[in-house]
């Protein structure tokens, strides 16, 4: 009788252990997901193949760009967030192609595709010893601006490869709900 009881208890314990393992195991996507390299605005964040330093963030209602020699102004229903980033390649030439803006509520915004012809946008090819600046441009909701995180990786499926996660810190909001430092028009025709 005692032996039977002991067996039952052992079985229950094994079941509980297996269940615990099952619920606590990371999802497959997390196991092979990107490897984060953390930093904040102004830090040089070092990944496997590249280094990124977000120098400044600017907000504007409109963007002025050059399109085939003509000036064009892009408006938005939200706000434009323009991050100037300096990239450097570690040991070999590479291309940094993907960036997204993750707001405080977890909403993630990919780079805008509306300005694909403008200079200095990703993808940017970088060579060792030759740092290069680029602009990352996002069209976001004003309430996703403060305490956002910038995610940068070399390619879209950066499985088991570095992803720079740069926290951009709090941004003070003005009376209209937009960041206090929002400018009316940001001129992207100027060199970075």
């Amino acid at each position: 009788m005692m032996r039977k009881m002991a067996n039952v208890i052992l079985l229950l314990l094994a079941t509980a252990l297996c269940y615990g393992l099952q619920v606590s195991k990371p999802h497959y996507a997390e196991l092979i997901g990107p490897i984060p390299a953390y930093g904040k605005l102004g830090d040089a964040v070092v990944g496997r193949g590249f280094e990124a330093r977000a120098a400044k963030v600017a907000f504007s209602r409109n963007l002025k760009v050059d399109r085939y020699g003509q000036t064009k102004v892009f408006t938005t229903g939200g706000i434009w967030a323009v991050v100037t980033v300096e990239f450097a390649a570690s040991a070999q030439s590479t291309t940094v192609a993907v960036a997204s803006w993750r707001g405080p509520t977890g909403l993630a915004y990919d780079q805008t595709e509306r300005l694909s012809f403008a200079d200095g946008l990703l993808p940017v090819a970088i060579d060792p010893g030759l740092p290069k600046k680029a602009r990352l441009i996002f069209e976001v909701r004003p309430d996703e601006v403060s305490n956002a995180t910038l995610l940068i990786s070399e390619k879209l499926m950066s499985a088991l490869d570095s992803q720079a996660e740069i926290s951009l810190g709090p941004v003070a909001a003005g009376a209209d709900g937009l960041p206090a430092e929002t400018v009316d028009t940001l001129d992207l025709t100027q060199p970075i």
Binding site: A91, Q92, S93, A125, D127, P128, G129
Partner: peptide, 15 residues
């Protein structure tokens, strides 16, 4: 590619 004494590697450029 080009490889230097430190082992750094450069790929062809389009710049």
């Amino acid at each position: 590619m080009l490889i230097d004494a430190e082992g750094r590697r450069w790929s062809p450029t389009s710049a």
